[in-house]
Amino acid sequence: MAIFTIDDVEKTFKSGDVSEKILKGVDLALNEGEITALVGPSGSGKSTILTIAAGLQKATGGQVLFEGKDMTQMSQEEIRKIRSSEFGFVFQSSHLVPFLTVEDQLLLMLDVAETKLNKKQQKQEVSKVLDLVGMSHRKDAYPSSLSGGEKQRVAIARAIIHQPKMLFADEPTASLDSKRSKEVMEIIRNLTKTLKITTLMVTHDEEMLPYADRIVMMKDGLIE
């Protein structure tokens, strides 16, 4: 059953008098608990569709339906609330907060998501999620002392700690070597399957495709 539907989404970028249509009517339905990989050549619009789906930018036309509600009609505040409580993000770079320890990064996310957990429960949740990504032993470390792979694991933990319904991953393994990329993808797959999180992932790495349930090819702003 589709939890997330992208319906005839268009995106046109304007620069002065010049306008360029990046998305030319994209249709995509994401099923609950499924990992969908968006692949395609550079400039095909795959990152654009991911960021529109994630509420990070507006579509020029079409609808983005999350649990039946059209996000294109929502206010910025409504979209922020959805992003903080229902969505999780993993980016190409880990984008961790440099002055927070691993544990604090996750506690921050629980605060932002306005979960109803008390402090003790929050710490227990953090401990559980850090176990899942194999980072319990580094909970007091700052990002500057973590390796690239470790940072990305923490970023994944941050993305799922508040148990979102959707996970958006934009080239999550692009900054990692092959071995670490596979480790990270294993973690994403295991977690999303365990927690039934619907995942939309952009990747250009063919080695990552076996971890996806569905592969969607994009070309010239359209799904092939």
Partner: peptide, 13 residues
């Protein structure tokens, strides 16, 4: 700026 952007992306007001 980058940090603020990410914090906004994850839903910080």
């Amino acid at each position: 700026i980058g940090l603020y952007g990410i914090l906004k992306a994850i839903g910080v007001k």
